[in-house]
Design a protein around this nucleic acid. Structure first.
Lengths: 239, 239
DNA sequence: CGCGGTGTTGAGACCTGTCAAGACGTGTGG
DNA sequence: CCACACGTCTTGACAGGTCTCAACACCGCG
């Protein structure tokens, strides 16, 4: 199941046999968690990071007053809080969206990797920077794109990210978020998410029901979103 | 002038004499650039990163249609595009706000550092993750905070970041952005920035004229912004 | 003295939010 | 098997924050 993670790495750079061994050796144990659980709390002292093997996670920032902003969604293959390795605590919670399987990676092992494998270290450094690039694109969405384009953009991004790790089937994929959770990602209210979703459906671009998202018109969806995938750094090259 | 950069590092972890030497050795040359110049273009192949020694930079993402989102502001001491070292190209432009002095750091030297100095490498890894934490806080602002709080929050953040590197004087600091540029940071229009600024002034929280921002009521400004500095990771600890 | 960039103001439109109620669906217990 | 409960989704009416467009004021600079 760590295969998905390796796929994600190999999409961006070559991984040697020795490095692959090191990656496989990172996971100390595999645990499961049910849906709707806080699994890492903001500020908590960290000794390990979480490699998501299966299911969906979200990174959530709370505001006094009960509002929340989901700053990133994570799917199988993502290192959800690798940044915690150097930050030592997080500025947000990590919560489960669905039931998940997680590989627990002790910081001790990552640290050992940084002492021994500089190239692999640079790849993981790259991965946290890719994460930041996704944040920046989200900032553009939140700052400048109207609701419809914002939602369309998210769907495009998720399609590509899931496709890399083999989690799309034909023109659709599992999409377990409720409309309220979607609203927390998009910086909208649940009511407006509902109406925007209907609009996307009425335009014949996507369909979403019972936890499954179908992209009907990929090209039209992309242009509604003004989507340009270059911020996902899909090219493979020496890092 | 690289002292400001060292200050910023030392705020977060101890730097040994050997590491300090390495940091000083990163800069190959110092160049100057006038205001309002694009100095790194999105997508451009990178062989060096830019350490800002003096002045202000912005990282800008363009949308087809001419809209722009500034995803981060940089002040003296910031490594503006350290993430470019592993990304190899940027997903945004880097532009000058003011006249700047910049230390040019060849990637070759950073790479050499990653092979030889794992602890310093982790510190720089930390710095790019700090950058991402600032992005996340910006996402909360853009997604959830109304204009007034959003602007107040930015002013609080800048005050702290400038204070770390010794660029505040009393209750004020140089703030060279035009209202249009401020709008590009905040995801607002210039007109609304103007009105919001008047509101903050009318409330007696800040004053801004001729490129200088004065914070009149720090506590009131913080609470108007719901500002909590913990996302800036100001504590010093082993990384 | 005129010009271009910047800042300011007003009126009206529009997108998104708020509040409230009801529909739907699925799991639970009687 | 039905009744109910709870979360989720949907809908309507209305409010409000922010945008758009347009005009004008201000100011430093050539």
């Amino acid at each position: 199941m760590i295969e998905r993670h390796l796929k994600k790495l190999r999409q961006r750079d070559a991984i040697s046999a020795e490095e692959e061994q090191a990656v496989r050796g990172l996971v100390a144990q595999v645990i499961e968690q049910p849906a709707d659980r806080v699994i890492v709390r903001e500020g908590q002292e960290l000794r390990e990071s979480l490699l998501l093997l299966d299911g969906w996670l979200a990174r959530v920032k709370d505001l006094p007053g009960g509002q929340r902003q989901i700053t990133e969604l994570h799917v199988a293959g993502d290192f959800a809080d690798l940044h915690g390795f150097v930050l030592k605590r997080l500025d947000h919670d990590v919560v489960t969206i669905t039931r998940v399987r997680i590989g627990v990676v002790p910081h001790e092992r990552i640290r050992e990797m940084t002492e021994r494998l500089p190239h692999l270290t640079r790849i993981y450094w790259f991965m946290t920077n890719l994460d930041a690039a996704v944040h920046r694109e989200a900032a553009v969405s939140l700052g400048r794109r109207p609701a419809l384009a914002r939602m369309a953009h998210l769907f495009c991004e998720l399609w590509i990210r899931l496709d890399i790790v083999g989690l799309t089937q034909g023109d659709s994929f599992d999409f377990p978020l409720t409309q309220s959770e979607l609203a927390e990602v998009l910086g909208l209210t649940a009511v407006h998410v509902n109406r925007t979703l209907q609009e996307l459906r009425r335009m014949g671009l996507v369909e979403l029901h019972s936890g499954r998202l179908r992209i009907i018109e990929w090209e039209a969806l992309k242009s509604a979103a003004l989507f340009d995938e270059s911020y996902l750094f899909l090219e493979r090259r020496q890092r």
